[in-house]
Design a protein around this nucleic acid. Structure first.
Length: 458
DNA sequence: TCTGGGGTCCTAGGACCC
DNA sequence: TCTGGGGTCCTAGGACCC
């Protein structure tokens, strides 16, 4: 038996913990450049604000409906997330952190009445972090996701269910255990839920399913697996089997290293100059390099892309990309910046209004043990490159072997990101055109001492 | 004027091999 | 004139997730 624990409207809920005055008001959190809405409170959803909707389309609601918009504060959300996750982990032997606001728990072998456990989990997370959650239990991950969806819908929109289901829906609000339903009750709930609400059935697939007469979850459960497998893919087949109660996916509590690491941004204003692109691309490369070392990997290739804005209909469009294999896998910021810039130079063309750029590390491998002096590295050497000269090791205080990159990471960890950087990735004098707008960001209450919330008497 | 930023998995088709 | 068959690997693109 699996549970899915999910924070309701995560980003907005994090903001509300520190600004209770936002409770009950319509609130959205905006993406980079304050461009689009990436989180909405229930009140904002009720105003009709859609996910990823451009801010300029809804900003009139600030005046007319009291909508509050905040810039994304990922440092705060990440920290709140890890608090919530460690509390949830106490309730089951295995946990898979699925996203910043969701985790699966495996309740195999856990005694006790699950609804009660779910309510206790909810209560504790709310009391200790201030974050409201929903909990769904099911025999498979897909069913747990669906139960979680029902827990939310029953809480927020009880009127969604037909009158004969209202009493049941009331019982399932906030914490929904499919294991306690009779077969008839489960079918009724599935019939009242659209097929597109199932985990793994997206917009395209649900549209095609609808055309074929499959509209509800119950329709999908009763459909012919072989036919749908042929029409769609093995993903849809697995989804159907999971909805029928056969587990096809396990909880993965030992997350594997990422297979790609990307950093990309839309610009606050169009960028045309190569020198500006080199600067941002160097910053992107520095970021991904840092995250690459964090997970203990090396990259075999660097992929970069730049693109104009498809929304600027009068601009000539251009969206080139290039992948540059490295002579040897590396996690060295200097190597990765240099490759990214070389790739960028190869695709850049003057005369375009670039709106977005990104750098991606691909072909990632676990870091081979570092080359000790006198010993070869385990990485394959390039026949046509001179032998690599290992960095002269610096001696850390405790005598541990370190090198330039770990020194860089340590300094930035201690003194703040960007304290030390490769020169091409540092901001040149004067304001850059592509500085992102973030005019509404709340303080990083839980991770920066100088931004901690102040309690005032009187 | 202003339109997110990460990821994963699957499939089809081409290159290549014997 | 007649021109195989089966397999693997890689990549690009699509669909999905939050």
């Amino acid at each position: 038996m699996f549970a899915l624990v999910d924070v309701n409207n995560m980003y907005v809920s994090c903001e509300r913990v520190f600004r209770p005055a936002l409770n009950g008001r319509p609130v959205v959190v905006l993406s980079n450049n304050d461009g689009a809405c990436i989180a909405r409170s229930n009140e904002a959803k009720d105003l009709g604000v859609r996910m990823a909707q451009p801010w300029f389309e809804v900003r009139h609601l600030e005046r007319t409906a009291g909508l509050v918009a905040l810039s994304a504060n990922f440092e705060l959300y990440g920290d709140m997330s890890s608090r919530m996750m460690s509390l949830a982990a106490e309730f089951a032997p295995r946990q898979e952190i699925y996203s910043i606001d969701e985790c699966f728990l495996d309740f195999e072998g856990v005694p006790g009445e699950r609804s009660a456990i779910g309510r206790e989990l909810r209560r504790k997370v709310l009391q200790w972090t201030g974050l409201p959650t929903s909990v769904g239990f099911g025999a498979t991950k897909t069913l747990a996701k669906l139960a979680n969806h029902v827990a939310k819908t029953a809480e927020r929109k009880p009127g969604h269910y037909p009158p004969e289901l209202r009493a049941l829906a009331q019982r399932l609000a906030q914490v929904c255990d499919f294991g306690r339903l009779t077969a008839g009750e489960l079918e009724a709930v599935m019939q009242a839920t659209e097929v597109g609400d199932v985990w793994g059935i997206g917009r395209k697939t649900s549209a095609r399913l609808n055309e074929g007469g499959i509209r509800t979850v119950l329709d999908l459960v009763r459909a012919d697996v072989a036919t749908l497998r042929r029409q769609f893919s093995v993903v849809v087949e697995k989804t159907i089997r999971e909805l029928r109660g056969t587990p096809c996916m396990d909880v993965n509590d030992a997350p594997e290293a990422n297979q790609q690491i990307m950093c990309s941004r839309s610009f606050g204003a169009p960028v045309t100059e190569l020198s500006d692109l080199i600067e941002v691309m160097s910053q992107f490369a520095s970021q991904v390099a840092r995250r690459l070392r964090e997970q203990g990997s090396v990259a075999g290739a660097v992929h970069v892309f730049i693109s104009t804005s498809p929304y600027r209909r009068n601009d000539r469009q251009h969206a080139p990309s290039a992948t540059l294999p490295l002579p040897q896998p590396s996690a060295d910021t200097r190597v990765l910046i240099s490759a990214a810039v070389r790739a960028l130079r190869s695709i850049y063309r003057p005369g375009f209004n670039y709106a977005k750029a990104g750098a991606m590390l691909v072909d990632l491998h676990a870091q081979a043990p570092g080359p000790e002096p006198g010993q070869g590295s385990q990485a394959t050497l390039d026949l046509f490159e001179p032998d690599p000269q290992p960095q002269a090791p610096l001696r850390g205080r405790a005598g541990e072997r370190t090198d330039l990159m770990s020194a860089l990471d340590t300094l930035n960890e201690r003194f703040g990101r960007g304290a030390v950087a490769v020169a091409s990735a540092t901001r040149r004098a004067g304001p850059s055109a592509h500085v992102s707008r973030q005019e509404r960001r709340s303080p990083r209450y839980t991770t920066r001492l100088e931004e901690i919330a102040k309690a005032r008497a009187a």
